[in-house]
Design a protein around this nucleic acid. Sequence first.
DNA 1: CTTAGCACTCGGGGTGCATGAGTGCTAAAA
DNA 2: TTTTAGCACTCATGCACCCCGAGTGCTAAG
Lengths: 355, 355
Amino acid sequence: MNLPDRKRRILKAIIENYIDTAEPVGSKLLAVSFDQPISSATIRNEMSELEDMGLLEKPHISAGRIPSYQAYRLYVNELMDSYRVASEEIELIRAQMNAKMRELDNIMLSASKVVSHMTGHTALSMSSQSVDSVKKCELITVDDGTSYAVVLVLASSVKNRMIHLSAPVEPSTAAVITTAINLAIAENRLDYLLPSMANSMGEHSPVYDLTRQTLEFISQTAEGSRRSEVYVEGVSRLLDNREYQDTNRARALLESISDHGKLRNTLQSGAANIVNIRIGPELDDPSLHDASLMFSTYSVDRHTRGIIGIIAPTRMDYAQACAKLLGFIQAVGGSPPGPPGNITANTEDTGESDD
Amino acid sequence: MNLPDRKRRILKAIIENYIDTAEPVGSKLLAVSFDQPISSATIRNEMSELEDMGLLEKPHISAGRIPSYQAYRLYVNELMDSYRVASEEIELIRAQMNAKMRELDNIMLSASKVVSHMTGHTALSMSSQSVDSVKKCELITVDDGTSYAVVLVLASSVKNRMIHLSAPVEPSTAAVITTAINLAIAENRLDYLLPSMANSMGEHSPVYDLTRQTLEFISQTAEGSRRSEVYVEGVSRLLDNREYQDTNRARALLESISDHGKLRNTLQSGAANIVNIRIGPELDDPSLHDASLMFSTYSVDRHTRGIIGIIAPTRMDYAQACAKLLGFIQAVGGSPPGPPGNITANTEDTGESDD
DNA sequence: CTTAGCACTCGGGGTGCATGAGTGCTAAAA
DNA sequence: TTTTAGCACTCATGCACCCCGAGTGCTAAG
C-alpha cells in the first residue's frame, strides 16, 4: 500500500496506542506523542482521510478512532517493527521446554504450555506430520492370547490399540497374521485380505476376529492420520482481554476454540517456514472475527515437526507475539542462538489489495 | 439431620427455587407456591430459624434467602427427589455414544462429549485404570535399525514411543535386548540392567543408547500410569451460568479446570460404584468454592473402566444431573435398560454433622 | 402457634446534569 | 496550498438523586 510517510506514522501510532490501551485514540492525545509535534487539527484531517481509505473506524461520533481490519493487515505487512528476542530469553525458553518435556513426555503439550506462558495468550499446538501412512504392523500377545496389542508404525509416529477376543489365538498364529498383513501393506492390497480369510475359516473364528479388528484399526489410523490432536493451553487468559469481558463474546470464542476439527484445518492451512498471521475476518468462523491467529511450523529434530500458534484478540501485540513465537521456534529448533534477527518474520499476505 | 417436616419442605422449596432462578427467594413468593398455603409470616419465622441453623444465608438484609453450603449437602443427602431417566433417553445416550465412538476412537473423549451435551454442563472424563504396571516390552524395528518403536503392554493399556538412534542396531540385537528387559521386568530387577551393560560395552554404543532410552520410557510410564489424561469438554457452557457472568470468577474457575493434575486427584478420590458429589467448600481449591463436582466410575466392559463427571455451579440441578449421569453409566455399561431406578444414587457423606 | 399489619431496609432502575474527550468545519496564518 | 487555531456540536460516562418494590423483623391479635 502506497501511503505518504506522515499518514503511515499516524496510522502506526494509532494502532500501537490502541493495542496498548484498548481505547479509541483521539487526535489530541496523539498530537503530543510525536517527536516533532503536529497539531491535533492536522491529525484530525489525516485521520479523516485514513477513515475514508477504510483504515480507521469510529465506534461513535464523539470517540476516537480505532483501526479497521485492513489497518491491522497493513500493520503486520508493512508497519510493524521487527521486535527481536534477546538471546537470554531464548535460553530461558529452552530451559523451560526441557523442564516441561521431562515432566510431560509429550512435546506438543509442553510446547503449548510454554508458549502460552511466555506470550500470555492462549496457545495452540499440534504435531504436523504430513500424511503419515502405516508402514508396519505388529501384534503383541497379552494374557496368553485372549488380548492382543496392535502396534502400528507410521512414518513419524506409533499408534497402538488393545484388542480383546472371545477366545485365545496362538501367538504363532498371530505371527502369521502379522506377516500376512505386513505383506499386504507392502503390496497395497489390504482390502483383499479379509474376504479371503472369511472364506477359508468363517467369520466366527477368533483368528478372523483378530484380523478384522487389526485391519479396522489400520484403516482408522490411515483415515485419522491427518487429524492429529490439537492442544489448547491457557484458555483462561482469553478472559483477561478487555474484549472478552462480555460473556457472550467470550462464550462464542470458547466454543470456537473447542472445535478442534476446525482449528486443525486452519492450522494446517498455513504456509511452511513463515509466521502465518490470520486477522479477524480472514478466519472463516464469524465468532473469531475479533480475534487473530498467529502460527508457524517448527521442527524439533529431523523426526518431529509441529505447529505452534497463539490466538488472541485482533488488538494483540503482533510484534511482540511474533518475536516470542520466533524465539520459541529458534529455542526448540536446536539451531544455535546466534546473532538475533536472522530469522525474519515473513508474514503471509492473503491477497486482497484494495486501493 | 433431624428437621421437622415443615422446615424440610420449606428448605427444599427454597433450594429448588434458587436452583431454578438463581435469585434469592423471599417469603411471599414462597408462600403461594405451597399446596395448603402457609402465610408468609410463618415462613419468615421458619426461615429465620433455618438461618440460625446455618442452612440459609442472606445476601443482604432486604433480599430473600439463599441456601448455604450445608443446605446443599442436606439436599443431596436427604431432600432431593430421585429423578429417573426414561429408558428412551438411555437408548438415546447409547446411540450417541456409538456414533461418537465410531467418530473418535477414544472412549473417554467420547464420554465427555456426550455427557457435556446431555447435561448441558462442563464434563470431565478420564480412564480409571488402577495402578497399571508394565507387563511386557517390545521393540519394533523401523527404518532398518536407526529408529525403534518401543511398545509397553500394561495391565489395561498399551503405551508407545519412538526412539531415534545415531547409529543402527541390528533387529536381532534388539530382540536380545527385549528378552533381557522382559526377564528383568518379570524378576523385578530393572535397576541392575543398565549398569551391567555400561560395563560390558561402554556408554556410547547405540545398543546401550537404545536400552537406556527404553528403560527410561519404562520408568516414566510406571511413574505416569496413575496420571492418565483428563478430558474436559464443554467449558464454554460454564459461561452460561449466572454466577460466571463475572469474568474474574469465570477466569479463576477456568484456571482451576485447566489444572488437570488437581482434577485427576479429585476424581480419583471418589468412592467406587456411587455418584460422588463434592459441593463447593468440600473441594480444596478456593476458586471452586462456588462450584460443585459430581462424578462416578463406570465400566464399559471388563477391560475398560472410566470416571465421568460434571462440574457446575453449586446451584446446579443435582437431581437432574445425577439422573443423567446414572443414565449414561447404565447406557454404556452394557447392562440392559431394564426397569429404571435399580441404580440408586448413594451420595458420599463427608462427615461433618453439625447440630 | 399462626397470622395480619406495620415500620424499616436497601438494591436496582430511571432521570437529570455536568464533564470531558472527541469531532467537523471554517477562516486565518505560514 | 498546507497547517493551525478556534468554535460549535456530540456523546459516553459518572454522579447525585429519587422512587419503587421485594424483603425483613417485630408486635399484637386470633
